[in-house]
Amino acid sequence: MSELLNQIEMMIRILMFLLPAVPATVKITLLSFTLAVVLGIAGASGRMSRSKAAGIPAKIYINVARGVPLLVQIFFIYFGLGKLLNLDRLLAGVLAIGICYGAYISEIVRAGIQAIPRGQSEAAMSLGLSRFQLWRYILLPQAFRLIIPPLANEFIACLKDSSLVSIIGLRELTRAGTEYYSQHFVDFHTWFLVGLIYLTMTLSLTKAASILEKRFRIPGMGIH
């Protein structure tokens, strides 16, 4: 009985140590994902542009950023560029994750926009909308509905991959786990709880995504 109580007490102690690091994980995830969405839209519009001046840089960006391991990008940006540009840990971490995920999201956005019938664009252009207005008012709102599921996937992956920045000493959830372990040498409980906190967050996101899908349902788009 007292053994069980000891176990519970230890779990609570570890949790109390880990939970204060959760906001940092959330912050890194939100900042990098916001950057990734902006880069994703820019990358997709570049790739779909008729102008080579926009198309070629976009293609290079997408292929490089998704072709190099994220961990290597984090090292390169923090240790490589970071020394030159004097980037702090948070900025370097957010940049690395944002740039990498921006490449994946570019392709998701492009797929979403290419799924919209051409006639929608022609109607918008006939009404005098500029290319920017066409994207802003017609293509992105329609594509967004189509790409909520893969976008939610990327968001969840991004949350999990935020743990990689623990390696450059950014104090987030995984880093807190490492710290607790190295002070107390309790490995099973520590990593079980770290995993459980991540799982709680990702499952909440899954739920949020399905609410979003319902909320943004477009009648007659042919999807359910």
Binding site: P117, Q120, E122, A124
Partner: peptide
Amino acid sequence: NVGMVFQQFELFIH
């Protein structure tokens, strides 16, 4: 200056 009407209507579905 020119309005256009299409065979498939092309109302914005959203």
